[in-house]
Structure formats: C-alpha cells, structure tokens
C-alpha cells in the first residue's frame, strides 16, 4: 500500500508530505522500494537495470552519472556493471537491486522483508544501506521477522499481527514495557513472541 501497489480500504498514507492516495505517481517519486522477492531483469546488464530505474524516476544524465559512480564504487558494482544480471551471484544481484532502489535519491525508502532468504554477506549489505540512509536523514520503513535487525536499526517500531497493531512506539519505550512478572526485562524477541501469543489467545 505504501508503494501504492494496492489501494487501502480506508485511512491515509502520506509519503514525504505527498498524499499517496490522491497522487500516487508523485508519492512514488519520493519512494525507494526493495523487497526480498525483488528481482532484476536478467537479460539486462547490472548497469542497464540501474539506468532503467533512474530513467523511470526522471533522473537527469549528470545526476545519474554522479550517483551511479558513488553507488557503484560503494557497493563494488563497477567490476560487473557490464555483465547481464542473469550471470550474477545472489549477493551481486542484491547489491544491484540496492543501487536501483536508491539511484533517484528517494526521501523515503521501504525495505519489505529485504533480508529474508539472503546469505549473511548480502543481508549485511542491506543493513549497511539502511544505516547509511538513516545517517543521511532519510525515512526508512523496514519490515522484518529478525528482531536482532530491529534492535540494530530501528528508532521506532510497530508490531503487526494479522492486520492489527500489537505494540508501537520508540524502541526504548517498547523495551521498557517488556518486563516479566518478576520485574526482569525481556529481550525484544521474547516480547515479540509474548505479544503474538497473547494476540492469538485473544483471537482464538
């Protein structure tokens, strides 16, 4: 819904001040979107994949060159920029997908289960990217089932289960509420499981 692929039944979505329901095209201009299932065009080269995304976002030639050089150098893509995506390893593909996601310098970046199914090296590249985005002041929406990643990256978090929000707030705030009957602090993972179990009990 945030990427405007699906239309919500109700509510509102605002992306960097743009109403995503009223003007989805303008909203998507401000958005970078990467999921774990996102794939590259296998018959295009790594460079062509990234260039295609830049062209779709209307990135000018000079801006493209500048951003492409920075990203390709940072992610080590230059070595295989001219190779077709179908010939790249999973890790290489993921780096190209990252470059494609942020080539237009979006204000908001959505990572939907972006590390699921990836090896440690590829997953670490995503984590690094998210940290960079955060450092640059971008808004990052990151969904995951891996609580260690949340602890490492999140400022604010929300726990969703079956379309319902079970917990929401700052990371410290949520952790502060995660205390057992003996006054001991739970880990985020334990708190997550407790919230889900409680919700399942309540739902059943």
């Amino acid at each position: 819904m945030i990427a405007t692929l699906l239309r919500p039944d109700g509510g509102r979505i605002s992306i960097a001040g743009v109403d995503a329901l009223a003007d989805p095209v303008a909203a998507r201009r401000k958005l970078g979107f990467l999921t774990g299932s996102t794939k590259l065009y296998e018959r295009l080269t790594a460079e062509e994949n990234v260039r295609y995304a830049a062209d779709l976002h209307g990135v000018g030639a000079a801006d493209y060159k500048r951003r492409r050089d920075t990203l390709f150098a940072a992610l080590g893509i230059d070595a295989y920029a001219g190779r077709r995506a179908g010939q790249l390893s999973t890790g290489m593909k993921q780096k190209v997908a990252i470059a494609r996601t942020i080539i237009h310098d979006p204000e908001v970046v959505v990572f939907d289960e972006a590390t699921s199914g990836l090896d440690v090296i590829a997953a670490r590249a995503i984590i690094q990217l998210i940290q960079n985005c955060r450092a640059q002041g971008k808004t990052v929406l990151f969904s995951t089932h891996i609580m260690s990643e949340v602890t490492m990256l999140a400022d604010d978090l929300a726990v969703f289960h079956r379309g319902r929000v079970l917990a929401m707030g700052g990371l410290e705030e949520v952790l502060a509420r995660a205390v057992d009957e003996h006054g001991q602090r739970r880990t985020l993972e334990d708190e997550f499981v407790r919230l889900i179990d409680a919700a399942e009990g309540g739902l059943s």
């Binding site: 095209v25 958005l31 979107f33 999921t35 794939k39 976002h57």
Partner: peptide, 14 residues
C-alpha cells in the same frame, strides 16, 4: 513470475 513487476509498478510511471 520473475518478480520484477512490483519494482516497475512502484516507479513513478503510471
């Protein structure tokens, strides 16, 4: 099937 449609649809192209 290849999973590239989502990326395309989340671009500013209508």
């Amino acid at each position: 099937e290849r999973g590239t449609l989502e990326t395309l649809l989340s671009s500013p192209a209508s």
